[in-house]
Nucleic acid binder design. Sequence first.
DNA 1: ATGGCCAGCATCGCTGGA
Length: 257
Amino acid sequence: MPLKIATWNVNSLRVRLPHVLDWLATEQPDVLALQEIKMEEVNFPYQELLEAGYHSIACGQKTYNGVAILTKQEITSDNAITCLYQEDEQRRLLAVTLNDLRIINVYIPNGAHPSDAKYIYKLHWLEQFHLFLNEQLKTHSNIIVLGDFNIAPTDNDVHDPQGWEGQVLVSEPERAAFNALLNLGFKDGFRLFTPEEKVYSWWDYRAAAFRRNMGLRIDHILISDALVPRCVSSHIDKAPRTLEKPSDHTPVVLELR
DNA sequence: ATGGCCAGCATCGCTGGA
């Protein structure tokens, strides 16, 4: 039974719900991980999504951040995790179990600028996330980590590597933290099938960046090594980015057998 | 041309995003 899994930073689920419903109807993913829902659970559109054929688990807050996992099959996981570390008040993590798969949805901090306190928070969050994944690997072998990583792992993931050099999203400490996650025993799912080509998942709203394809690949689906033999394809779906009032991110998709 | 846009807020100018 093939499984279609996707991630999408929707930049406000309130604004983007019509796009999400259209995309679910067209693409029929088994799992869709959302980031930046920007709402509390009390306002989450559980009913509309259920009517569209999807069960939801959400972990949100007012105004900022917030993650959710939509699934065709209802998740009965009693070991869901919604917080990376105790002092972190930002809703950026949701880990659930679906059959034999551990699904970990992340919205990694943006970091603002390498000289900003938010950058320190980002690197600290990545350290804590590394420890968390290391623990998860002790109890789960089939792990999918997907979401908005806010890191372009290599220059092939950047439209203008010279212009972006040293900046947040591409800086060496961020890339080192990303590679450290891979070194725990994960592969970048998209790069299993598209090793070199420059394809992006985010384009700035400004400067007609999408039309000029000035983008970054910062949304990822990581596959634990045990799952790699089950991967059959991965692609980035640019179609939602062409709509009226789009999110600045577009879905990344991966299929398992 | 080192800026451009967008979402949310007890909105009308700021924060945060990337």
